[in-house]
């Protein structure tokens, strides 16, 4: 199933914003995400992980394409399937993996785990365990950024599941009302747990919904890194220039189940295989080769580098200390 972009990004083309260096960096991040997720699964199967996890294999282009458009001083706020978003926001892989393992030197001292990895200083305001929970907060971040007037933006990621919540409705309204520098990015991976999103909407309709609220919106082929990047680039420019919020819907697919309890009863293997045939990583490799950004050999080396970094992070995490019980009550209140 080769997907064509369903909606072409509007406005002028900004020409080539990707060169060899950017292509390398983006491919590396996609491989790091893929490798992180695969390692997460392996560690879980090996009984080394206490909790559950939500893997984003198959959605790498959405995370990397979107976040590659912003500055280090900008913010992101994620959702429960957020490993890829952290990596795309330049998370320290060791600290991330240590958090996944629940270790003291993880990003959140082992208190948050897979679903809550955050790096506030690094502009990552955290993954969120409540579907739709990040949307109202992103509006508030936008309010603060607008008041400070330093030209910063926030990318607010949510899934198709969050789009059916009341939080989405209220957040769209407030974002438009306050004209905040927020780019909402809906990662439509087709299922809210087991609920088929196409039973109530589509990526194009979600974009249309935002337009009804009064913000520009576009649906992209979310497995096409460059299409995502181009759409989000335009959205970021719009938000940064003070024109207000923007919604980009990345149409994509999660290869793995919702979480570890998922037995895939609600979809067919054929459907999963079809989406695997439009693997965002393979597609970007083809483009990068065609545009002479990366040779096949270079791409393979990048892949090896990504997997090696994750392996190093695994070792770091496994060698890291557990939190002490004596410290259990720390961090509830700020001084």
């Amino acid at each position: 199933m080769e997907q064509e972009p369903k909606v072409k990004p509007k406005g002028k083309k900004k020409g080539i914003t990707v060169g060899k260096a950017e292509a390398r960096e983006m491919l590396l991040q996609m491989y790091e995400i893929r490798a992180f997720e695969e390692q997460a699964e392996k560690s879980y199967m090996a009984g080394k992980i206490h909790g559950t996890m939500h893997l984003s294999i198959g959605q790498e282009a959405s995370a990397v394409g979107s976040i590659s458009t912003i500055e280090p001083t900008d913010y992101i706020l994620g959702h429960h399937r957020g490993h890829g978003l952290c990596i795309a926001k330049d998370a320290d892989l060791n600290l991330m993996m240590a958090e996944f393992y629940g270790k003291e030197n993880g990003y959140c001292r082992g208190r948050g785990g897979s679903m809550h990895i955050a790096d506030v200083e690094g502009g990552n305001l955290g993954a969120n365990g409540v579907v739709g929970g990040g949307l109202p907060m992103a509006v508030g971040v936008g309010v603060g950024l607008k008041m400070r007037a330093k030209g910063q933006v926030i990318l607010s990621f949510f899934g198709d599941g969050a789009a059916s919540t009341g939080a989405f409705h209220e957040s769209m309204i407030l974002a438009v009302l306050f004209k905040v520098p927020v780019v909402f990015i809906c990662e439509n991976n087709q299922y809210a747990m087991s609920f088929r999103t196409s039973d109530w909407t589509t990526s194009e309709n979600l974009a249309g919904l935002a337009e009804h609220y009064g913000m520009p919106a576009v649906a992209t082929d979310g497995n096409d890194l460059l299409a995502v990047r181009e759409a989000v680039e335009e959205a970021v420019e719009y938000a940064r220039s003070g024109q207000g919020p923007y919604l980009v819907v990345n149409d994509t697919y999660r290869w793995r189940g919702h979480s570890k309890s998922d037995r895939n009863r609600y979809r067919t293997q054929e459907e999963i295989d079809e989406w695997k045939s439009v693997d965002p990583i393979e597609r970007f490799r083809k483009v990068a080769s065609k545009k002479k950004w990366l040779t096949a050999k270079e791409a393979d080396e990048i892949k090896d580098e990504g997997y090696a970094r994750i392996e190093a992070a695994r070792i770091f995490a496994e060698d890291s200390p557990e939190p002490t019980v004596e410290s259990i009550e720390e961090g509830v209140y700020a001084p």
Binding site: M137, V139, V143, G144, E170
Partner: peptide
């Protein structure tokens, strides 16, 4: 929405 907006603004 407004309580969340306050939360997000406070977070930064």
């Amino acid at each position: 929405g407004l309580t969340g907006a306050a939360t997000g603004a406070a977070l930064i």
